[in-house]
């Protein structure tokens, strides 16, 4: 017991760092959003929610984050299964393919996409020369482009937790299921999928949190035309000099993030308790 208490001291530097650099500023921000002229008030929130433009932005932010998470999940799950079965050189190839893109900055990626997706870009040239379309299709500056781009950037955060869980799974379990008469589809839905759910929950929580608060990717891909909460926050602080509005939007983002973290850990605990 004594020994464990000492080991707890090792977490002290990290906790102090988090408290001073992360928790304290956010707490001050939160307090600011509930204050007007030194009075406690929810007026800023009332103001925010009464503006239909803000509601459009809030809904768009949540929708983009949700669709990004879903797209990443659909692409990541089969990838994670393939990775969990890969051995030797193939596993290394997969892991490098996951980690390497993270070291390329989002700015670089975004400009690289624009070469492909812009009106006179590689993709449109190809579609037109194949006769699939007569006029170039607008792909950049759309919500779809944003979702595809965001899913690409955040994909490793979905693949790796699912891969980690599948890798730990006893390989005999699907075999035992097969010997008990379970078809490949039955095996997937009754053995592999339920056992991988903790990884799915963790991956979704990561990607949703990242996507709901992303700033650089939408700025580069959709620009000012379609705002998200993060962009609105930045605009409030930087251009409008409206600190109260900025603090309010930040706090809304913070509340969304905290709900996701708490909700996912509650789900993970529930799933964990069953096994």
């Amino acid at each position: 017991m004594r020994r464990l208490e000492h080991i707890g001291l090792l977490a002290l530097p990290g906790l102090t760092f988090l408290a001073v650099i992360f928790a304290l500023p956010l707490l001050l921000l939160l307090l600011k959003s509930f204050q007007i002229d030194g009075q406690v008030s929810i007026a800023e929130y009332r103001l925010f929610f009464s503006d239909s433009y803000n509601l459009t932005v809030l809904w768009r932010t949540l929708r983009v984050a949700l669709l990004t998470t879903l797209l990443a999940l659909v692409i990541a799950y089969p990838t994670a299964i393939a990775m969990s079965r890969a051995r030797g050189i193939w596993l290394s190839v997969f892991l490098v393919a996951m980690v390497l893109p993270m070291s390329v900055g989002v700015v670089v990626k975004a400009f690289a996409w624009s070469i492909i997706f812009r009106t006179r870009g590689v993709l449109n040239d190809m579609l037109m020369s194949l006769g699939i379309t007569d006029a170039p299709i607008r792909m950049l500056f759309t919500e779809s482009a944003l979702i595809i781009g965001a899913a690409n950037v955040f994909l490793p955060f979905m693949v790796l937790p699912i891969y980690a869980v599948l890798r730990q799974m006893d390989g005999r379990l699907p075999e035992a299921a097969a010997s008990l008469g379970a078809t490949p589809v039955f095996r997937f839905f009754h053995v592999t999928l339920p056992l991988s759910l903790p990884g799915v929950v963790a991956g979704c929580a990561f990607v949703f949190s990242l996507a709901v608060s992303m700033y650089v990717i939408p700025s580069l891909i959709v620009g000012e035309r379609q705002q998200t909460l993060s962009m609105l926050t930045a605009r409030s602080f930087l251009y409008l000099r409206n600190e109260a509005l900025g603090a309010t939007i930040s706090s809304i983002l913070l509340i969304i993030a905290i709900s996701v973290v708490l909700g996912s850990s509650w789900l993970a605990n529930r799933l964990g308790a069953r096994s």
């Binding site: 006893d170 005999r172 379990l173 075999e175 035992a176 299921a177 053995v191 339920p194 056992l195 096994s275």
Partner: peptide, 9 residues
């Protein structure tokens, strides 16, 4: 199986 491979969930 040797490890019994019971379904943990």
């Amino acid at each position: 199986f040797q490890s019994y491979a019971l379904f943990p969930h």
